[in-house]
Design a protein around this nucleic acid. Structure first.
Length: 826
RNA sequence: GCCGAAGUGGCGGAACUGGCAGACGCACCGGACUCAAAAUCCGGCGGGCUAACCACCCGUGUGGGUUCGACUCCCACCUUCGGCACCA
């Protein structure tokens, strides 16, 4: 009686065994080359979803493959454990966030173990543990001491639903990235990290990231948004003040016909002439009341009012009317723009609406532009006109010359402007790492000394449904003494953005229990940078940008020796069901628990890897899972059925085999090559798996269609062993079980990756295609090593071809050795 | 609007550097086994034409081009998805 593939018992057995033996423990120092394989660690939301399964299955194949390839592979897992859902659960169900979080971690850890991912669990940590966040706070202090963490009053993004502020990166199309609520603009005093100080390096070093997808680099490039131009000063008539503008087009300065300032600009209040004051105030009031969403979503009708004031164009001395206009953003540049209607589409629209002059200063080749009649702004190249001594210059040259001219008179300077803003890291929430700062009536803002870290987050707290942080009402937390003067002082009650916690976790995995420093330098030097990082593309400008910033900062202060944390990045696609992202609200969620219970880990892993290449979206298919399950059963039946036949033979067939034994060997070795290349060079696990399926199909034929006398058991043994080794990274449990049944006493996961013999790959006969005028007309089998000339001859002798060519003039014959011959006739 | 990616059977997807389009899997159809079913095994499976799985024709989003030969390269366009969105 055939024994069934009992995945549940097999998987449980090996899970225990591996854990007992510490099979996946990796040591920090050895002679072998290192490989750091990291998947983005999850937020412990409660249960693993299919996106996690896919992410971790991909990482595990890479880690296991590299291990078999002879590397020491660091493959750790942990928990991004601070965050809002824990707090919401506390408010809703009365469960303390810490308990909720730790419970979730326990569940999800169990699920990851079920999946059979080869983590070194000794290195696990959670960012909400004081042993970790102590160092998060410590890193905050390092930034603070170097002037890169600062508190400032600024207009910030406020999410009313989450009851906290958000960083720019966390606002998507005017709405909260987490909960999709429209964010509001508020003027608050908040903590920032000066990521803008690294803008240039973050941009420049994108070039070093050859192993990153172009898509992600472009997103970061756009996010940083570098533009080069000039800052130009326009003196305001009748005052000592100046209006500064940033422009990328100093060449169009002569075409300025008005000046526009943002409604939030402090100048609005000062500059307006008395008789215009009321109108200006009313306009400013109205513009400010618009929500961020209304102001930014979609193109808006451009509106503005005249202030009654004028400034002087530093190039030609003309008086230019000053407007307040709703399309000018306070946050970018200086909050003021010079209006050049002829050469900027926005200015053009505004000028037409308010009847302002349109003066052409850049004249393209061909038909001349006319400010009176043009239908849209001209933004292309040309020669200068209406610009005095600069007339006739090509505009690109004029940019530099006009800037230089003004610079010499103190009216301008060359300027590089970024779209990137500083990273707002304060959160008005409880479940995060407290910001280690104390406010003293006498000493002001005082950092907590490093020796006093961690500033512990109190866990015995009461939650209010308002969402306001319970820390505010906790005198024993808030009230403290000033570290500097010892007098009573008040603690900062805001906590840090959780993206801060995840900006350095990949260093911590190298030495997770280190108590005297955030990490052990030797270990960081040994393991970093991460060789392969795997996760969702949604972090393109969040986590991935922040982590790059952190790494550069840490490099600058000498704590790490690398400037970029992630050498290669793989952004995996989403898991879809019925064409849409799985979500509770759509009711199209497939739970990993169910699938694991029904089919086991090996099948689950195999399916998410086989369905599509990693970077593409994956459409869930129950039937596809079924198919993978069938395949593994097929492997099981095949191997168990030949076990007695091959048990006592070595897997080293003779070299001079012929016929079926030779073909079987060829297929085996071809498969080894294909799988190796598919994994190694492009992570195409789907085609790697399909190659093993073909091998299995071939092995079935070898078993069933070749009589036992003609079959060399060593050939079968070799095929079985190589098959199991090739499948080991994908289906670690099944292959381990069958490996043991073959009589091996060491784990298959300690075996080296199989080799192939190039000599065995060569076919002696190949089928070639015969084309006439590029269309397939015939096929024939020829010796593989035949020369081009011989091929020509052989083809022309073929009766069918002779027939087709008869009476035609042969113009040309193109032989492609080993593939085809194309005959061109007329 | 700008930037980026992708369009291949009924479906997921293959096709290395320009050389047999549709590997592998799913679904479906037929057969074997079975009292029957499931499972398993074997075979078929882009469309048209046809008595014919002889041959021929069409076929990788659309239209053009380069080439002996194009899913692959070039030009133009269409569609879908993702990112940014008054950034001066």
């Amino acid at each position: 009686m055939e024994e069934k593939y009992a995945f549940a018992e097999i998987e449980e057995k090996w899970r225990r065994r591996w854990e007992q033996d510490g099979l996946y423990h990796v040591h920090d120092f050895s002679e072998r080359p290192k490989y750091y394989c990291l998947e983005m660690f999850p937020y412990p939301s409660g249960h693993l979803h299919m996106g996690h399964v896919r992410n971790y299955a991909i990482g595990d194949v890479i880690a296991r493959f590299k291990t078999m390839r002879g590397y020491d592979v660091l493959h750790p897992m942990g928990w991004d454990a601070f965050g809002l859902p824990a707090e919401n659960a506390a408010i809703k169900h009365g469960v303390p966030p810490a308990r909720w979080t730790w419970d979730n971690i326990r569940t999800m850890r169990g699920q990851l173990k079920l999946l059979g991912v080869s983590y070194d669990w000794r290195r696990e940590f959670a960012t909400c543990h004081p042993g970790y966040y102590r160092w998060t706070q410590w890193l905050f202090l390092q930034l603070y001491h170097r002037g890169l963490a600062y508190k400032a009053k600024a207009p910030v993004n406020w999410c009313p639903s989450c009851a906290t502020v958000l960083a720019n990166e966390q606002v998507v199309a005017g709405a909260c990235e987490r909960c999709k609520t429209a964010v509001e603009r508020r003027e608050l005093e908040q903590w920032f990290f000066r990521i803008t100080a690294y803008a240039e390096r973050l941009l420049r070093d994108l070039n070093k990231l050859g192993g990153w997808p172009e898509k992600v680099k472009v997103m970061q490039e756009n996010w940083i948004g570098r533009s080069e131009g000039a800052e130009i000063s326009f003196p305001i008539v009748g005052t000592d003040e100046q209006i500064k503008v940033f422009t990328t087009r100093p060449d169009t300065l002569g075409g300025v016909t008005y000046m526009a300032i943002a409604p939030e600009h402090p100048l609005c209040g000062r500059v307006a002439a008395p008789e215009y004051r009321a109108a200006v105030d009313a306009f400013v009031e109205r513009a400010r009341r618009l929500s961020e969403l209304e102001r930014t979503a979609g193109e808006h009708e451009k509106e503005g009012v005249f202030t009654g004031a004028y400034c002087l164009n530093p190039l030609n001395g003309e008086a230019v009317p000053i407007f307040v206009a709703n399309y000018v953003l306070m946050e970018y540049g200086t909050g003021c723009v010079m209006g050049v209607p002829a050469h900027d589409q926005r200015d053009f629209e505004y000028a037409r609406k308010y009847g302002l002059p349109v003066r052409v200063v850049i004249q393209p080749e061909g038909e001349p532009l006319d400010g009176e009649t043009m239908a849209e702004a001209y933004t292309g190249p040309g020669h200068l006109v209406n610009t005095g001594e600069f007339n006739g210059l090509p505009n690109v040259q004029a940019m530099a010359e006009i800037t230089a001219y003004l610079e010499s008179r103190g009216a301008a300077r060359h300027q590089v402007q970024y779209r990137l803003r500083d990273w707002l890291i304060s959160r008005q929430r409880y479940w995060g790492a407290p910001i280690p700062i104390v406010y003293c009536a006498d000493c002001g803002t005082v950092p907590v000394p490093e020796s006093a870290l961690p500033v512990l987050l109190p866990e015995d707290v009461a939650f209010k449904p308002t969402g306001s942080s319970p820390l505010l009402d906790l005198p024993e937390f808030v009230n403290t003494v000033c570290p500097r003067c010892g007098r009573p002082a008040r603690r900062e009650t805001d906590t840090m953005d959780t993206f801060m916690c995840s900006s350095w976790y990949y260093f911590r995995f190298t030495s997770p229990r280190e108590e005297n420093a955030p990490w052990d330098r030797d270990r960081v030097d040994r393991w970093l940078p991460v060789d392969q990082y795997i996760g969702g593309v949604e972090h393109a400008v969040l986590h991935l940008l922040y982590s790059r910033f952190f790494t550069k900062f840490l490099y600058d202060i000498g704590l790490v020796g690398i400037e970029e944390p992630f050498t290669n990045l793989l952004t995996q696609g989403m898991v879809l069901k019925d064409g849409a992202k799985m979500s509770k609200s759509k009711g199209n969620v497939v739970s990993p628990e169910d699938i694991l219970a029904r089919y086991g880990a090996d099948t689950t892993r195999l399916f998410v890897l086989f369905a599509t290449p990693p970077e593409r979206d994956l459409e869930w298919s129950d039937q596809g899972v079924e198919g993978c399950y069938r395949f593994l059963q097929r492997v099981w039946r095949l191997v168990t059925s030949v076990l007695t036949e091959i048990r006592d033979v070595p897997a080293v067939p003779a070299r001079d085999l012929v016929g079926v034994n030779r073909s079987m060997r060829r297929l085996t070795h071809q498969t080894v090559k294909k799988v190796t290349v598919d994994i190694e060079t492009r992570f195409n696990f789907n085609t790697a798996i399909s190659a093993t399926m073909e091998l299995v199909n071939g092995m079935y034929q070898f078993r069933d269609r070749v009589s036992a006398v003609d079959r060399d058991p060593a050939v079968m043994r070799e095929a079985v062993e190589k098959l199991l080794l090739l499948l080991a990274p994908f289906a670690p449990f099944l292959t381990e079980e069958l490996w043991a049944r073959l009589g091996h006493t060491e784990s298959i996961h300690k075996e080296p990756w199989p080799e192939y013999d190039p000599e065995l790959l060569v076919e002696d006969q190949v089928e070639i295609v015969v084309q006439i005028n590029g269309r397939v007309r015939s096929r024939m089998t020829l010796p593989a090593n035949i020369s081009a000339a011989e091929m020509r001859e052989a083809v022309l002798e073929q009766p069918r071809i002779r027939e087709l060519v008869a009476g035609k003039e042969i113009q040309k014959i193109i032989p492609v050795p080993g593939k085809l011959v194309n005959i061109v006739i007329r």
